[in-house]
Design a binder for these strands. Structure first.
Length: 814
RNA sequence: GGGUCCUUAGCUCAGUUGGCUAGAGCGCUUCCUUGACGUGGAAGAGGUCAGAGGUUCGAGUCCUCUAGGACCCACCA
């Protein structure tokens, strides 16, 4: 409210008036967003406008909001939810039963990491608190942050049904996730196994490949003497885990060694020399030490040759099962020590500097260790088959379409998904293990709660799994889990949902997996369309981030230019799948648009008499025909473009209609001879068209219209209702030049110049058209309708040119 | 190594299956304006659509190659 105090147009009395009563009927000279946005939001909420309503006979529309991580504030990516709001508002205005269902995500390991950093500031670790206290504190922390993020979403005007807000740790959601887990297990898609995994020693957790990053690091390559053969390695500390040396079967240099043995230095253990096609004779010495327990490829070689696995690195990243002098050392420390020992033993042939990339955990940037660990896995191959089919049969359309290939590429090569995380913040995997040796009982059972475990094992004979599910395991079930629990019949009405809008970068992590779960759990795709957006960048194309200092709090932008301006800057000039730049001047431009809209309204409302109603509008003059033609065209284009997810294009059409057609031309003309009803009709229609993009200013104006008491948010999307003659409209095009140029000093010269320019253009057109039609190849080979169009264009151009010539003559002679 | 994409006006970007004179916003130049709006109006400059070939009656759009850039996956002994 404080900003009201600084409003130049309000007296103290005015403030009281504004605060306590209906909307002020007097319009300020400029649109001041901060004065209107809170009252408009309140109006929508009071009216219950976000709740699903609409004509039950029409096709329902539903978007499940991608759940933002509950651990932080609004970031640039969330702003792109604007396109979902545009889609939602559009559907709502079309009278479809419309639901935009919001929710937040507990974001397992990530939130845990954020909160551990908080704890570290106080000198604490999660181990000081223990699992239960830690969970409670993180829950409290999460709920607190969630409030902030949701307030931000609401202030963006996002018209989601906030009363249905879901959270990934809601009990009913967990229940759905458990049910699906149990089914998956029963159907044999889930297994527990010892597998080589990406292990983060800091987080003490396994991660799938997709949650690792690669960074370049300067290291060294060590060539080590294994007696019969020399090997090259960047990881000498793992030589104790070697179980073989592999060479390429076609490698002449080593042919004779295959089947013989090599000797691991320092421990003098004999290991076989084997042949495997994976080995690249060109790389290193052409001989590869095989370490199945700590390298993915070696693991596979080990599987192929039935080799044992020796683990020498434990879950804390320390050495085990190694000579005493190295035991307990951390990896890098051990590397140094082993290299020194090799040197002393005369087994280090040479050391070469090397820059290579190492895998790190994408959240905490800790280097990943590969080790063998017992985890829960989801077999994805079978489950992905229907996903591939659904994409290939276009049961799901992805915008932009090229991402379909990207998705298929991924689906065809995805490895089994490690779904367990030893985190404390998340959904506990519903498993109980046997703790006695009862041969009658299974080693573990899947059970939703302890009662079942007691029933099966008997009191005291079991322990509960402490690992939690990978966050994506639950969030990938979001579309149906939310709708099944958000309200009576929601699932029946709104599933499969209409649209999923999300960041292109989580296509693999999230989108394909939602389809997989959806098809498995519900036998239906979870959504029919996917709209992917890119990254929001600054003007230089750099990703916005606080650490780079190019990220301005969206709330500051909206305070400066208004929420509508920010929304337009994010939805116009940014297209599906591409990165888009957000910068001050751009937002400012759309602020200007909102102001233009405001002033168009101000002018029309001041001009038209009491009782004016757009319903009585009649098309009378050439100007009327012209403007109605523009309005009709824009209605059709905007509708078509939004329906085909071309939000940028649709927004631009509205921009042009309002500014160039209505404000600069039609209003300018109407100052001479107004058609009040039609002016009202133009305003009425352009407000509807602009509403999805700029909901606040359009609603603020709508509330001040004399011909309606409704709320624009739930008004009807416009249809073409007046017909317009193009011939009449043509007359206006010539007339308007006169009117506009009349305001200039040398009016006549300007008008002549403009007409001449137009004539020049027509002549040019005639030349091109004629030469085209003279071309026999064109006439004979081009499709008939193209040739016909060309002929008509030529005729039209000739007649236009003749008219123009006449007018120029007339003007000159006066 | 496999894949996807980008290169269009000074800047940020549009340009749907090839078919009107390649567009917009911002910026720039000149001018205008006492009432809807200077968060304005009018006029204008500015493009060999990265380069080279090709297909076609016709290419910014399709194909091949080259150069520069971004990203994804896999790998890196």
């Amino acid at each position: 409210m404080s900003n009201l105090l600084f409003s130049p147009n309000l007296s103290v009395g005015g403030i009281i008036f504004l605060m306590n009563s209906e909307f002020n009927s007097q319009l300020d000279k400029a649109y001041l967003p901060s004065q209107h946005e809170p009252e408009v939001s309140e109006l929508w909420e009071k009216a219950g406008a976000y709740k699903p309503a609409g004509d039950p006979a029409k096709e329902p529309f539903c978007i499940i909001m991608p759940p933002p991580n509950a651990n932080g504030v609004l970031h640039a990516g969330h702003l792109m939810y604007t396109v979902e709001d545009i889609a939602t508002r559009f559907a709502r205005m079309q009278g479809r039963p419309t639901l935009w269902l919001p929710g937040t995500d507990h974001a397992g390991i990530e939130t845990q990491y954020v909160y551990e950093k908080e704890l570290a500031k106080k000198g604490l670790s999660r181990f000081d608190l223990g699992p239960e206290k830690f969970y409670d504190e993180v829950m409290e922390f999460t709920k607190r942050h969630q409030e902030g993020a949701l307030a931000g979403f609401k202030s963006m005007g996002f018209s989601a049904d906030w009363s249905k807000l879901k959270f990934t740790l809601d009990e009913d959601i967990i229940d759905v996730v458990y049910d699906v887990f149990i089914r998956l297990h029963k159907d044999g898609h889930i297994y527990r196994g010892n597998r080589i995994v990406n292990w983060c020693p800091r987080c003490q957790a396994a991660f799938p490949d997709i949650e690792t990053e690669h960074i370049d690091r300067d290291d060294a390559m060590y060539t080590v003497d294994y007696g019969t053969i020399k090997i090259a390695t960047t990881r000498p500390e793992t030589i104790f885990a070697d179980v073989a040396v592999a060479v390429n079967p076609k490698d002449r240099n080593y042919e004779t060694l295959i089947g013989k043995t090599a000797t691991i230095p320092l421990v003098d253990r004999q290991i076989p020399i084997i042949a495997d096609a994976h080995v690249d004779p060109e790389a290193g010495t052409g001989a590869l030490k095989v370490t199945p327990a700590h390298d993915k490829n070696d693991y596979e070689i080990g599987q192929r040759h039935n080799l044992p696995e020796i683990s020498v690195i434990d879950e804390e990243g320390k050495l085990i099962n190694v000579p005493e002098e190295f035991a307990g050392m951390e990896v890098l420390e051990a590397r140094k020590a082993v290299v020194e020992a090799l040197g002393r033993a005369g087994k280090l042939v040479k050391t070469d500097p090397l820059t290579h990339s190492v895998a790190v955990h994408d959240r905490c940037k800790t280097p990943i260790e590969l080790l063998i660990s017992e985890q829960w896995f989801l077999r994805v191959k079978e489950l992905n088959k229907p996903v591939i089919e659904a994409l290939e049969n276009n049961e799901i359309n992805i915008y932009p379409a090229r991402y379909k290939r990207v998705a298929l590429n991924w689906l065809n090569q995805e490895h089994d998904w490690c779904i367990s995380r030893p985190g404390w913040w998340g959904i506990r995997i519903p498993v109980y293990y046997k703790t006695n040796n009862d041969p009658e009982k299974e080693n573990y059972i899947i059970a939703k709660d302890e009662k079942e475990a007691i029933k099966y094992y008997g009191e005291g004979n079991y322990r509960a799994e402490t690992d939690t599910f990978d966050t994506w395991f639950s969030s990938s079930q979001w579309p149906y889990a939310t709708l099944m629990t958000s309200g009576k019949d929601d699932f029946k009405t709104f599933y499969p949902t209409s649209l999923m809008g999300t960041a292109a970068e989580i296509l693999h992590k999230w989108v394909t997996r939602m389809v997989m779960f959806g098809l498995y759990a519900t036998k239906q795709v979870p959504f029919k369309n996917v709209y992917l957006w890119g990254t929001v960048t600054d003007e230089k194309g750099q990703k916005l981030s606080k650490s780079k200092g190019n990220y301005e709090d969206p709330m500051e932008i909206t305070a400066k230019y208004g929420t509508d301006a920010l929304r337009m800057a994010l939805s116009i000039g940014i297209t599906a799948g591409n990165n888009g730049a957000l910068y001050d001047e751009k937002v400012q431009g759309y602020r200007n648009f909102c102001n233009k809209l405001w002033n168009v309204a101000r002018f029309i409302l001041a001009k038209v008499p009491e009782g004016t109603n757009p319903e009585n509008a009649k098309v009378l003059s050439p100007a009327d025909n012209w403007v109605v033609g523009k309005v009709n065209e824009t209605i059709e284009l905007v509708t078509k473009n939004i329906e085909s997810y071309r939000y940028s294009e649709a927004g631009q059409e509205v921009y042009t209609l309002l500014w160039e057609d209505i404000a600069d031309k039609y209003i300018e003309y109407s100052k001479q001879s107004p058609n009040n009803e039609l002016l009202a009709y133009c305003l009425d229609t352009v407000l509807r068209l602009a509403h999805p993009y700029a909901p606040f200013v359009t609603e603020a104006i709508w509330q001040r219209l004399m011909w309606t008491n409704s709320n624009l948010i739930t008004e009807q999307w416009p249809n073409v209702i007046h017909s317009a003659s193009t011939a009449e409209a043509k007359k206006f095009e010539i007339e308007i030049i006169k009117i506009i140029s009349a305001k200039q000093k040398d009016a006549k010269a300007v008008e002549v110049k403009k007409l001449q320019k137009e004539l020049e253009a027509k002549k040019n057109m005639i030349r091109i058209s004629e030469s085209k039609l003279d071309n026999k190849n064109f006439v004979n080979n081009a499709p008939k309708n193209v040739v016909e169009d060309e002929k008509q264009r030529l005729d039209q151009a000739i007649s236009d040119a003749t008219k123009l010539e006449g007018q120029i003559e007339k003007l000159k002679s006066n």
